[in-house]
Design a binder for these strands. Sequence first.
DNA 1: ATAATAGTGTCTGTGAGACATTATGCC
DNA 2: GGCATAATGTCTCACAGACACTATTAT
Lengths: 247, 247
Amino acid sequence: MANSDSMDEQHYLTNYQAGDYSSPLVTVDVAIFTLIEGQLHVLLVQRGNHPAQGRWALPGGFIDTDSDLDLSEAAGRKLHEKTGVNAPYLEQVCTAGDARRDPRGWSVTVLYMALMAHAPTAEFVETVTDARWWPLSSAQQQHLAFDHNHLLEAARQRLSSKTAYTVLPIHTLDEPFTLTQLQQAFEEVLGAPLEKKSFRRRILSADILEESGEAPPPGGRGRPAALFRPKAGLEDHAFVRVVGEGR
Amino acid sequence: MANSDSMDEQHYLTNYQAGDYSSPLVTVDVAIFTLIEGQLHVLLVQRGNHPAQGRWALPGGFIDTDSDLDLSEAAGRKLHEKTGVNAPYLEQVCTAGDARRDPRGWSVTVLYMALMAHAPTAEFVETVTDARWWPLSSAQQQHLAFDHNHLLEAARQRLSSKTAYTVLPIHTLDEPFTLTQLQQAFEEVLGAPLEKKSFRRRILSADILEESGEAPPPGGRGRPAALFRPKAGLEDHAFVRVVGEGR
DNA sequence: ATAATAGTGTCTGTGAGACATTATGCC
DNA sequence: GGCATAATGTCTCACAGACACTATTAT
């Protein structure tokens, strides 16, 4: 390790060679979820290159030390390249790193979870042959590249557990939305039904939504529902009690 | 990117050169907390080398791709090298990475938080001139190396927020302990007083402690307290309501 | 009117907050 | 006895669960 008391930091840095240490590979992967017809889906891409050529994988790839300013920007970039969308919600989940997860050697991946509303008008994804929205359970049943089954499970767990005390699923809906739609989003993410009254009481008393004055879409059966959108900035509300399975 | 349809994965891998991409530097840092005389302390080491020579920093360093099997093992190793202790509790907090946090270039660090009981008999740390337990507030007031002020704050936040719905501070105590000691540990971590009755009700009804039959230490004033230790395996209990500031 | 969906009233149960009271050791 | 600390009794309040009920639309 190059160092001496007489060497100042400037001098040290000019002599420093990054290649002196064997550094792990560093990638960023993104599990992006959305609701399509009420079902939770995750975006996967089919790998065109070795290793794991032909397998489906979470979108991601190597950090570009020239153009990426930081990790979350790298994650956003990977996502944008695949979906053409700037993820409305992006959260770092965890980092996996060991000697075996990538056959190329010791590698580290920083996993992000993203949520977006599925815009049925945006064909950008469906038309790309190697990127597809998968129903979550189908995605989890197949053999994904690398350790992406584990990563997907970790992201899924983060989504579920945070849904119990936040309003995360709000990011899977287009605005404005009805309370029933929001409840169904929660139920799909949690994998369990919720009590209507409790849910509405919880959400409304948190004071994080505002009624959009808009008229309800015509053609629906039954009483038209009120339409809401999140109040600005208040989307990261945390409840002091957990919802669902009151043990 | 080297690839062709005719090349099989084995062939690809033998031709693969890790140096082909400019990879960020990868380090692991650990914020280890303990209680010393009721006060929360964090272990810092003074850097002997450039960069940031002479500054105090969280213990950590480069991944050793030869000997480290995975990230948490690397974190455990860094900790062991500094404290001679295998951390009883180790949790990954987050990963920071950008072009500027280290003057040597694009770097990524995986931050872990650790908790341990302060064994007054263990001089290993105090005698090493470049490693010291700092009261948390003193540590946070000085200018630490790199972005370690931010990392320390992130670890501190994780500790506080998880303390609100788990029993994390249990790992800062020697066994057996009294409920009063446990409550004081919670209060120190949360930075706020707790109601005695609520606290005891919560902890006892969670059924995660067992009474150690041991006799209370002599010499104390007042009624002797019952001594407890955690039941095996049940230390990661999660409550469905949050403690402290019942808003 | 009937079906269908939106939305409310209200009772129960759990557990946190507050704080007064009792218990058990020491001198 | 008095002091100090441990432990309990018990009331209130917030909020989740349950579920019956009313409201508003289309046909």
